[in-house]
Design a protein around this nucleic acid. Sequence first.
RNA 1: GGGCCUAUAGCUCAGAUGGUUAGAGCGCACGCCUGAUAAGCGUGAGGUCGAUAGUUCAAUUCUAUCUAGGCCCA
Length: 954
Amino acid sequence: MDYKSTLNLPKTAFPMKGNLPNREPEFVERWMKQGLYQRIQASRAGKPLYVLHDGPPYANGHIHIGHALNKILKDIIVKSRTMEGMQAPYVPGWDCHGLPIEHQVTKQLGDKKRDMSATDLRRQCREYADKFWNIQRDEFQRLGVLGDWERPYLTMDKAYEATIIREFGKFVEQGGVYKGLKPVLWCTQDQTALAEAEVEYMDHTSPSIYVKFPFGDYSPAKLASGNFFGIPELADVEKVSIVIWTTTPWTLPANQAVAIHPLIEYAFVRVGDEVLVMADELVEKVCQECDLKDPEIIGRKKGNDVFEALRCQRPLSKGLSPVLLGDFVTLEQGTGCVHIAPGHGMDDYLLTSKYNASGQRQVLTEPLQVLVPVDDYGRFTNEVEAFAGQHVFKADPAIVETLRQLDVLVGHDKLIHSYPHCWRCKKPVIFRATQQWFVSMDEGRLRERALEEIDRVQWIPERGRERIFGMIENRPDWCLSRQRIWGTPIPGFTCAQCQTPLINPQVIDRIAGLVSEHGADVWFERSARELLPDGTTCAACESTEFNKEQDILDVWLESGVSHAAVVKQQGEDWWPASLYLEGSDQHRGWFHSALLSSVTTDGRAPYRAVLTHGFVVDGQGKKMSKSAGNVVAPQDVIKQHGAEILRLWVAAQDYQEDLRISSQILTQLVEAYRKIRNTCRYLLSNVYDYDPHNPAHNVEVSQLPELDRWALLRFNNLIRHVRQGYEEFDFRQIVHELDYFCSVDMSATYLDILKDRLYTSRADSPLRRGSQMVLYHIVTGLARLMAPILSFTAEDVWDAVPGRETSPEDSVHLSTFPEPVTISGEADLEANWKQLLAIRTVVLAALEQQRREKVIGSSLEARVVLNVVPALYGFLQAYEQELPTLFIVSQVVVRSTEHPAGEKHLASEEALGMSVNVVKAEGEKCERCWNYRDSVGGAPEHPTLCDRCIEAVT
RNA sequence: GGGCCUAUAGCUCAGAUGGUUAGAGCGCACGCCUGAUAAGCGUGAGGUCGAUAGUUCAAUUCUAUCUAGGCCCA
């Protein structure tokens, strides 16, 4: 007789292989078609809100692995909050304006750009942004991310642009907006400002000169005194000078100061009848390059010792330059003393701004000026009489000659070095201060208020607080203007007569209205007269002629106001957002600009919590780059393994640090995935004939055997840990718990033990039905617990659960997390089973010994002899009937003894007080259940079956 | 150069107010099973806890320096 057909062997259509790359798109399409996101939102109406506000990626190019990481993390959080029963909307957005797109479009246009209007160029940029945000949308959806993809927000939407202008208006209203000078990279050939991304570094030959700045306030004798340097030898010399080194002689007319490093040691070097001051470490080098004869060091002083505020003579302009202390001074080149021209260098500008600010003002006798005696074409203006009209580079030799004649030139050479060139015309560019719009950090206490708000926000990880605090604390005023086309215009005007700026809330409000109706293009299409309210006159000269502002706003302001343009628009209770979640670089970017914007306009931070993640690096922890050839593209991972593996990767990594990715890591995750999937498959395959709604298929938990209650207990434990993991954003823990539960608790323990019962019992025996109830409980719960991470597989499992009212509308993502079941005496049960499983481990080791000796193969061929101390014997007696099942052997004998180790044994465990021996099982092997039993052969009609099986088949 | 941060088995991660043989899962090796089968089970081997110095009775855990790496800034 074919007894195999009388077994209840597992049955399921759920495939072992996920075939993820092919099947995932089907799920995505189904979710989209059934309007899953909208239905989830509707089902959570009125529930507690959890608003994760999406930071807009830049609408340029395909998504990279960092985008995938960011969006998957967000999706896991949104889904898990949803499954906790909250209303967790997700409105994705894109950052559409800005230089990279304008740069790309300009590059593609080439010469055609010359005769193109601003509006035409803007149209091209818009098309470009449209193309890419749509591409990215598809790619994000492919990752399984649920959200309001039908109505995302775009910073180039009319309504959004209008909000940008209104929020800028609030800055103006608060009085913090002003116009001032700031150095930018400038191409004198194209007469245009350039961003750092628009310059290419190439070799360039510059003059290299050393120039004396003689101390002007005091005589050498005075400087020699104890009040100053206390170097008596100074009294005997004619002149004491600081020596600077520069490769841009043309910036000397704009000199305002000399900077030295506070911690560097400076030497007083006597050369002939004068003394030169330079960094001690560089004396030899400088003397060699400048051919200085018989230098003698007569003293040394540290930078922060007395030098500060001493003044020296400017070589090419009137006045005295103070000595300032700057951390950026290095010993790499030059003299350790730097000539400071705030109109022509970023360090120079920042240092003088710092000194001009109230804190260090007393060091100066007068404020330092940002001088820019150079016009748009790079020519000296009349402010520099001697060289007026000459291009600065052309003037260099004449300037050097003048310095020589003035006897301040210490040395002169040439230097080939890497220097920024215009990306378009390839000519060397210069640093040149131009008029820009700023928002003051200190007017209206913006800085102070922002710092206060930082402490009201939860920073995850906590160190994020230090990072943004330090940045806000030290940042200069926010420069809001950009000399570009593709963006939101600065709604300001200048009187055509007297150049008085016109910018006020009423005018801005009118512009915002126009923009909300026509889009920001209206600014470029209409004249100043058309844009301004009728009858606008200049407050200073009453002229009615105005020029409109040419610059656009910094895109960081644009994305920064998304809390107003997006979050607030959805409803009053949406703002402030529950969470912002981006890469840690956004402490300087979006978190920063959003904070400043929101503090200005609303007086508080726009987020309650900020979570940051690290950056994706390769398997060695190295940054990914095209040149290193170690880039992992999400598209490739999806094609090879499926988005699910990428999702699992995100969850399994410690996202607070750098995240490594490599084929080895992915392969490992594929293995872990298979284990989880296969466990689900096996669970499903054993409930094929179970009906959750049939009372006969259900058993009271208290009536279940301990083994099943233990399984429920372990699953309770999993539920608690997984939900806690989601709550605390600790997804690693979840993956490890899931993995452990599937591998150890289920596969290696519960399911392995259960096979005999499931297969060989009568199909509807209460014992089997009870187990099926547990399996059903676990598989449906498991699908829900994994759904936020393994969104596709969870849905796949959900579909395959038998007896559940399935409909095309249903989805695991509409459900909520499972709750732990009540198990009476849970703590005792847990303790007892911990001990039983520890004993099991010792038994398994003993079985392995006999397997090696070829005494047994399958564990069912074994008879286990346990020698245990009396205390343990008492404990085990209660379980005697269960032990063969637990060890998956045919027979178990328990013997009490004072010295287990003294008995014949193959394995022992002193801590437990036991030893184990294993012998061949007694009796015959039952053909049906494979157990060895004395009863086999007892019934003539079934000579190869045991008593238990006979009962099952008749 | 400055700010913030990281470094535990091949991989992903635990862990210890400083104190016995540093854990898990996976992978690997070997074996078993063939009624989860491109599955399942078992046993086992893997770590000078990045390097060096210091504090201490005792450091992988604290301090300093260094090395490697990441983000931001210059």
